[in-house]
């Protein structure tokens, strides 16, 4: 799936309605806890129904299918299996459910790409992008607040910024690769991301020392 698809979804009215009627973060967290505590397959199936098609879209957006038709479905399996096995380490006070699931999908994709490229990894993605390292309580409240800001802010962004955001954050492309693909200077890609973050009132620019 291309960024253009993502964009069309982001801007469509339907997407807004979908967001409003979709389950809340609290409900996803309840389901994850049910899986962790009781190996609740009904709860797991509900999570699967919502997240599996998103994981597949994520796999397609990063071009996994070009290395093998079966790979997007395989990534879905790997990520959902990891969610099942790691559910006990999910802590709703620390992370919003969708952020937690995104980080698992990202880590599994990194490990899969390394296997495909026959790169012997001395260090697993989970060791580098350590899911359990951030011990900050109330991270979930902060993450939910950020997610709300981003949801509201994305619709207000100019198309060029939204497009770059989708490519840089989801499509497994570095800034340089996005610049090459869009025939833009590297600095333009970086500044569009920064501008977008700023418009969504995220504090990333505070780090710009």
């Amino acid at each position: 799936m291309s960024a253009a698809n993502v964009i069309s979804i982001l801007s469509s009215k339907k997407a807004r309605t979908m967001t409003q009627t979709s389950q809340t973060a609290d409900e996803w967290a309840d389901l994850l806890e049910a899986v962790a505590r009781r190996q609740d397959t009904k709860a797991f199936e509900a999570l699967f129904k919502h997240f599996a098609p998103l994981i597949k879209a994520f796999a397609l957006s990063s071009g996994l299918h070009s290395q093998g038709d079966h790979l997007p479905e395989e990534l879905v399996q790997d990520v959902m299996l990891a969610i099942w096995r790691k559910s006990a380490s999910y802590d709703r006070r620390k992370a919003a459910p969708s952020t937690w699931i995104f980080t698992i999908a990202r880590n599994q994709r990194i490990d899969m790409l390394r296997r495909l490229n026959k790169y012997r990894a001395d260090v697993s993605a989970d060791a580098i992008w350590d899911l359990e390292s951030d011990t900050e309580l109330f991270g979930e409240i902060r993450q939910s607040r950020i997610q709300d800001k981003v949801k509201a802010g994305l619709y207000e962004l100019p198309v060029d910024q939204r497009q770059v955001m989708a490519k840089v954050f989801l499509e497994d492309k570095s800034h340089q690769e996005v610049a090459d693909e869009m025939k833009l200077p590297l600095g333009t890609v970086k500044s569009r991301v920064r501008l977008a973050m700023k418009k969504m009132k995220l504090s990333l620019e505070a780090l710009d020392l």
Partner: peptide, 21 residues
């Protein structure tokens, strides 16, 4: 800052057009 970026990614992730498995 990383938590912000991952939260941003998660929103973009959830707003993708779902592809049936």
């Amino acid at each position: 800052a990383l938590s912000e970026l991952e939260s941003t990614s998660a929103v973009l992730f959830e707003q993708q057009a779902a592809v049936p498995v």
